[in-house]
């Protein structure tokens, strides 16, 4: 064997690297959903937004040669889907969960429909920042090739966490989510706040999709998302509507997702289906262990249909 063989240390390293590589789309989608849900509305359609963002980001990057412009356009397309959802849900008697599911289908359908010509071409990738120059191990150097979107996501999570607590806008969003009558009494338009929160949330989800197609795994195909968008929406509930916890949940999911391949690579090969399902098993066990009937709804926006 050679000097770069790190044996079983490869597993924690792979989980660390996986947490960084795989978490970004979860992070962006869950932050977007966190914002939307904080305002009192649930948008289950972010899976469709993610897929359309991945397609449009890739297509734009290919056509213009600029991956960052692709990310921006993916965000814009996400805004578009968010705005549709936000506008429709303003209408009386319309169920936001149902609209979300229909939008998921609509977004995915449009992405597949317009995405056919972009499966073959090669779009330019997003660059990464090398932070591992200090290490002599290629594994560590590779794990520390980090995409700027990861850092933007962290900054966004911290900012949202801070802004919900300390800014007027944060207060307005939280109030709209906790009690529509109170927000109305203060003179804010509940519909307008929720519309904006859903639109901006859509932007984040679109950016998350662009990360998938433009960085990791880095190509547009119809099988690109294996339900990341849907899972990220669920993670918001897991994270109890706290942006920092969303970041933690995304990291956990990324790390657990790397577990299956990493264990096989060091020779633990039996039962890989369960190791591949580790993110789901782990999340479920953490929920069972940490949640009690009394605390489960702590932090939940009072207006959310799913928590009523």
């Amino acid at each position: 064997m050679n000097e770069t063989d790190i044996g079983f240390w490869g597993v924690p390293l792979a989980m660390f690297a996986g947490a960084i590589r795989v978490s970004t789309p979860f992070l962006f989608v869950s932050l977007g959903e966190c914002l939307t849900e904080k305002s009192g509305r649930i948008n289950l359609g972010l899976e469709g937004t993610l897929v359309f963002g991945a397609m449009s980001g890739y297509a734009v990057a290919y056509l213009t040669g600029s991956p960052w412009f692709g990310v921006f356009c993916a965000g814009l397309s996400g805004c578009f889907f968010g705005a549709i959802h936000g506008y429709i849900c303003k209408l009386p008697k319309v169920n936001d969960i149902a609209i979300g599911i229909a939008m998921m289908l609509f977004g995915t359908g449009l992405a597949f429909f317009f995405g056919k010509p972009f499966i073959q071409p090669q779009a330019p990738h997003l660059p990464s920042i090398s932070l591992g120059g200090w290490s002599s191990l290629p594994q560590v150097r590779s794990a520390l090739e980090i995409n700027p979107l990861f850092f933007i996501g962290i900054a966004l999570a911290v900012f949202m966490w801070w802004a919900f607590k300390n800014t007027r806008w944060g207060l307005i969003v939280r109030m709209t989510g906790d009690s529509a009558p109170a927000a109305l009494a203060m003179g804010y338009s509940v519909d307008w706040v929720r519309f904006l929160a859903t639109t901006v949330g859509g932007f984040f989800a679109g950016v998350g999709g662009a990360f998938l197609s433009l960085y990791y795994p880095g190509a547009w195909s119809e099988g690109l998302s294996s339900g990341q968008g849907l899972m990220a929406v669920a993670l918001v509930i897991f994270a109890r509507w706290n942006p920092l916890a969303c970041f933690g949940a995304a990291l956990l999911f990324g790390a657990a997702g790397a577990l299956g391949p990493a264990l096989q690579s060091v020779g633990i090969t039996q039962g890989y289906y369960f190791f591949n399902a580790a993110p789901y098993l782990l999340t479920l066990f953490i929920m069972i262990a940490s949640v009690s009937p009394k605390r489960s709804l702590k932090g939940a926006p009072g207006e959310l249909s799913i928590t009523k």
């Binding site: 599911i101 229909a102 939008m103 609509f106 977004g107 359908g109 449009l110 597949f112 429909f113």
Partner: peptide, 25 residues
């Protein structure tokens, strides 16, 4: 046409159907 054509149609139909619920009453 690509297979996604009917996905688009379905998505559109369901969005409009759900929007139409606002018309009841």
């Amino acid at each position: 046409m690509p297979d996604a054509t009917v996905l688009v149609l379905q998505g559109l139909m369901f969005v409009v159907l759900l929007v139409s619920e606002t018309l009841y009453g």
